[in-house]
Every structure is written in structure tokens, then in C-alpha cells.
């Protein structure tokens, strides 16, 4: 059982996938690829113009901007992926459980979700971060939580949508039940919309992580997260606008690539 039937793949729409893979690998192997230590402060070398030694120059503390961008892939791109994966797996478990059980559990679940969804996700995450205190770990927790509410509600609806389909009933009559039913019949039919929405939201989550770091609620000072870098660069926006431009462009590029990927995944099914 393939996710995508071979005769239906339009491969030309998927060029963003290899590009994202390359970015991911760069982040994974950042310690090998980086020209300099991204955390090494050298005030004597501050605000250097681009050169062979420092391809994108240095920031206000004399740190290599390219190295910081490369290591930043881990924090921006990597943590967004982790958030999405953890959230969707938990949401699948929760949503499937609630959709198959129905009854009072389902009723309570929906009410609680609706109350939480009444807050915009950012406000909800804000509240959680205020409660937990600013740190990378807490940003992950807060965003996983907000995504989880949204996704489990969505997956519950998707499950209930095909609950009444005849092939589910036919499978039950054939003797398939419980987890086997979910794995063989629900998931393969729901995977395309789920994959699409998860890919689409990676961009949103990257922006949220960067946003939290920018206002100082997320990743803390020396860690080169892209939103953090934009924040640090903003003090020198008149003299050295490129310090904000590089991480800003990195964010835009990755978000655009994910949106493009999601758009084309949507067309596949």
C-alpha cells in the first residue's frame, strides 16, 4: 500500500522536497560544515564585511553570521519538525481514541477543545510560556500543546467522517477491529490530508518559534535561533541592516519551501 500511487505522481511539483532535505542535512551536519565557532565572541572582528574567511561577515560580537545561520537550522527548522511530529502522533492517538469511543468522553473532549481553540494559538502559547518561563524546551512544549489541540480536533472529525463509510463496516464484518482497523483502513485514507496540513503548518510553527525568540520569550541569548538573530540585529538596523536580513531571508525561504511542498502534496491525492 503506497501513500502515493506510482501512476499519479507529478514529480515536478516536488522540487521543494530535495531542497528542504539539503537544508535539513546542513543543519544536521552543521558542526562539520560551519567555517567558524558560531558562539566564539571576538569584539575586534565585529561588523566585518563579507570575505572569503567570513562569507556573510560578522555580527556585533564578531561572531560568524554564516556559522550562526547554519547552526540555527537546528533550532528553527529542526524544532519545528519535532513539534509537528510529536503533535501529530499524539493527536492521532487522542483523536482516534475519542472518535472510536464517542459518548461522554467525546462530548467533553469537544467542549474542552472548543474552549481552548477560542483563544488564538499564539495567545494560548503566550500564556503557557508565561507560566513555564522562557526557554527552548518550554517553547517546544507550549507549541506542541497548541498544535495538539488543533490537530486532535481535526483528526477526530476526519475519523468520524469515514466512520460511516461502507468499507469500514465491511472491514468490521470481515473481523477487523481496534488498532488493526485504524492502521489498515483509517490511516491510509486520511494520510494525504494529514500530511498536507502538517507540512503546511511547519512554516507557521517556524514563524511562531522565531516570533517568540524575537520578543525574548523563546530561545535565550547565545543560541543562534533565527528569530533571536533578527532580534539581535535590530539594534544595528541603520548601520548593518544585513544582520536582520540574512536570518529573515532564511526564515522566508524555509517557510515558502514548506508551503510549496504542502501545496503540491495536496494535489497528489
Amino acid at each position: 500500500m503506497n501513500l502515493v500511487r506510482k501512476d499519479r505522481v507529478h514529480s515536478k511539483g516536488l522540487f521543494s522536497l530535495p531542497l528542504l532535505l539539503i537544508i535539513g542535512l546542513l543543519g544536521l551536519f552543521a558542526p562539520i560544515v560551519m567555517p567558524h565557532d558560531p558562539l566564539a565572541v571576538d569584539i575586534a572582528k565585529k561588523f566585518l564585511a563579507p570575505s572569503w574567511d567570513y562569507p556573510l561577515g560578522t555580527d556585533h560580537l564578531g561572531r560568524c553570521v554564516l556559522s550562526r545561520l547554519l547552526l540555527g537550522i537546528r533550532y528553527s527548522f529542526g524544532s519545528a519538525l519535532v513539534i509537528q511530529l510529536v503533535a501529530i502522533v499524539l493527536a492521532l492517538l487522542l483523536g482516534a481514541f475519542v472518535a472510536l469511543k464517542r459518548g461522554i468522553i467525546d462530548f467533553l473532549f469537544i467542549r474542552i477543545c472548543d474552549i481552548l481553540l477560542a483563544f488564538p494559538t499564539l495567545v494560548l502559547a503566550f500564556g503557557l510560556l508565561g507560566l513555564l518561563g522562557p526557554s527552548l524546551k518550554n517553547v517546544l512544549l507550549a507549541l506542541i500543546f497548541t498544535q495538539l489541540i488543533y490537530y486532535s480536533r481535526m483528526i477526530r472529525s476526519l475519523f468520524i467522517g469515514i466512520n460511516k463509510k461502507e468499507f469500514i463496516q465491511a472491514a468490521r464484518i470481515t473481523g477487523t477491529s481496534g488498532i488493526k482497523l485504524v492502521i489498515r483502513h483509517y490511516i491510509p485514507n486520511l494520510l494525504p490530508p494529514i500530511v498536507t496540513i502538517v507540512a503546511l503548518d511547519v512554516g507557521k510553527v517556524i514563524l511562531e518559534i522565531a516570533g517568540f525568540s524575537f520578543i525574548g520569550l523563546g530561545v535565550q541569548a547565545p543560541i543562534p535561533e533565527w528569530g533571536m538573530m533578527v532580534n539581535e540585529g535590530k539594534q544595528y538596523i541603520r548601520q548593518h541592516p544585513e544582520l536582520m536580513l540574512y536570518p529573515g531571508l532564511a526564515i522566508v525561504l524555509v517557510v515558502l519551501l514548506f508551503n510549496h511542498l504542502a501545496n503540491n502534496l495536496k494535489k497528489l491525492d
Binding site: M1, K165, E166, F167, A170, A171, R184, H185, P188, N189
Partner: peptide
């Protein structure tokens, strides 16, 4: 409709 469309 009695078949899961993703199964052979």
C-alpha cells in the same frame, strides 16, 4: 464503496 480504495 465496500472496498478500502487504498487496498489492492
Amino acid at each position: 464503496h465496500s472496498f478500502n480504495p487504498k487496498q489492492t
